[in-house]
Design a protein around this nucleic acid. Structure first.
Lengths: 224, 224
DNA sequence: TAGATTGTTAATCGATTAACAATC
DNA sequence: TAGATTGTTAATCGATTAACAATC
């Protein structure tokens, strides 16, 4: 038994799996809140739009064991996911860019609920520097090295206009930050050692616009 | 030649390709702005972190033709991408949820720059209803059917807290909207005929947190 | 011309799904 | 016990990459 627990996922999980884990976690937490105690791979798959096969494959990477005929114990599943995603730790975030989007992020309740704490906010715009966002004061970019060192920052969020994003990324990388969330409409160039995830509303909307166009001719034909 | 132009991509492109198209477009526009006129698949791949093979495969779906020894004419590439993504049209968006995130989206300059126009903003909160965001007034949910009908809405953006998101989605679908951008932390249930794209900052941060943990043991070993 | 680059076919790689023995 | 559900192996599917003839 202690043997079994030893086989922690030391290697990195495949990207598609990683991206599904947060969804499993949210699903598990919802189920937990609803008072359920067991869930099967079929139910879970149904809830997330996956096959039960995919669910079982995914969960087999985790530190949970299902039980024949019953499925997975929700509390245990939830805690295994929490552990794998390190959702029980505080992750400290520095936010660069205090425009509308930056402010929205800093004030977004979901972040704190899931362990992400915005520890510092920077901006280049002198008119914004010094203003308050929640209980943080916007600092000039020159305060970045100090803030990163002091606040033990894990993740940098780039919420500046596209033309400034690369310079900001360079600065964050120079400060030793190894994970960036890029909200700007540019492809950042960073060293391989730095993890980047991109999130762009406009890009998502463009994807939707494309799908919308190609769907109406076809989708309503063979929908199940 | 008119034969060649006829073979428009009537069928839907594979999802991974669709998701790369906006990146090609942004890249092409940057190149265009910089005054370049030709770009090869190798250069494009380098800029976007793709192999030249992938680039050529992707672009072969489009209505562009490259030229041996020169590559693709940037203006032509840009316009083919624009056409495929319908980025030359106005897309009308209804935004539900006028919290920090909703407001940020409504005021985000990139949207209008890329042809997306927020035509109406709704919220449930009586304290928010009636307030202004840019030159839009926040309307009650009851005004939704009217707004959708009148404003010829293409896309719905859901920026409400998770517990309300499904009800909002149901309402939008009932109004005939076929494309949703979901920013809430729930898995929406919608008919197959409705396109959904999800974007969740917390999920992206969780992905980063996971990658961060698994990277520092490994990445700096075999980095190129 | 010689060399670079496309467009496309074939090979590889990886992810999803199916299937099924083990098991509660 | 009989039946449901896991964990895992094998089969399928699809996406990425390699390779190369055509061509400018």
């Amino acid at each position: 038994m202690s043997e079994k627990l030893e086989n922690r996922p030391q290697t990195r999980l495949p990207d598609p799996v990683i991206r599904r884990l947060p969804r499993y976690l949210i699903g598990a937490q919802e189920l937990e809140a609803s008072g359920a105690t067991w869930v099967s791979s079929v139910e879970l798959g149904h809830a997330l739009g996956l096959t039960s096969s995919t669910v079982r494959q995914d969960l087999s990477h985790l530190d949970v064991e299902g039980v024949s005929k019953r499925g997975y114990e929700i509390a245990q599943l939830s805690s295994a996911l929490t552990r794998t995603l390190r959702a029980d730790r505080k992750h400290r975030v520095v936010l660069v860019g205090a425009g509308f989007l930056g402010r929205a992020i800093a004030l977004h309740g979901d972040l704190t609920r899931y362990g992400f704490e915005v520890a510092a906010v920077m901006d280049v715009n002198p008119e914004i520097i010094g203003t308050s966002i929640g209980n943080l004061k916007v600092q000039p970019m020159s305060a970045l090295p100090d803030a990163v060192a002091r606040e033990h920052i894990d993740i940098g969020v780039i919420a500046v206009p596209a033309p400034e994003a690369q310079a900001v990324a360079d600065a964050l990388v120079a400060m030793g930050i190894l994970a960036l969330l890029n909200l700007a409409l540019v492809q950042l160039k960073v060293p391989d050692s730095v993890q980047v995830v991109e999130e762009r509303i406009v890009v998502s909307l463009q994807e939707l616009a494309y799908r919308l166009r190609t769907s109406d001719g076809e989708r309503n034909v063979g929908a199940s």
